[in-house]
Amino acid sequence: MNYGKRIFLWIMLFWIGSAQVFAEPFVQGGPIGSQTSDGYDALGPVVEQPIEFPHNTHAGRMQINCMYCHTYARRSNVSGIPRLDKCMGCHNLIEGVKDRPRIKKLFEYWENKQPIPWKKVHDLPDFVRFNHERHIQRFYFQEKRPIRETCGYCHGDIASMTTARRVKALSMGWCVSCHQKDHLEKAGSTVTSHGPNDCWLCHK
């Protein structure tokens, strides 16, 4: 390999490397099939849900906190998919939208006494333990970051989607890339720390 080629390769390497380092921590997914700046599929596989649940209406336009429905996120490993009675608690009283096709479907499940068979979008392998509580407690309750940002680190901007799509890679390297970064310990402080990196924190 001649000298010029080698220099060129180093420059290319640096360019690619710096793109990785300076990439935004989370970028909203683009159209299907495109890639995020960190090189993953912008949107995960299409999951067809029994009802096309409009996150953009609930979390986006209505500004409902994610944890109103995903209520376990603050106190458990899993965030939880709300039960049907959670939906009905509000929608029984919202007369204006009862004639919409998606709401009609909701009432159908309610009248048949059937749970809605939601499908899992953000699925992790069985040997991985991910704890919602730790992340929510730290970033939402302790640091008072907005809920849309806190959940968005891993879930992307769900408030702009209808049914949730996987935006982030949810791979180990991707988790570690955030855990290795220096984060401010508190808003406004200069002390930084990074996430834990012990194997058994996530592997079980």
């Binding site: 392998p125 040997f127 012990d198 194997c199 058994w200 592997h203």
Partner: peptide, 15 residues
């Protein structure tokens, strides 16, 4: 297999 900060000898199955 490695040592955890709380003094346990760990085994990571998928590795």
């Amino acid at each position: 297999t490695h040592h955890s900060p709380d003094g346990l000898n760990t085994q990571v199955y998928n590795r």
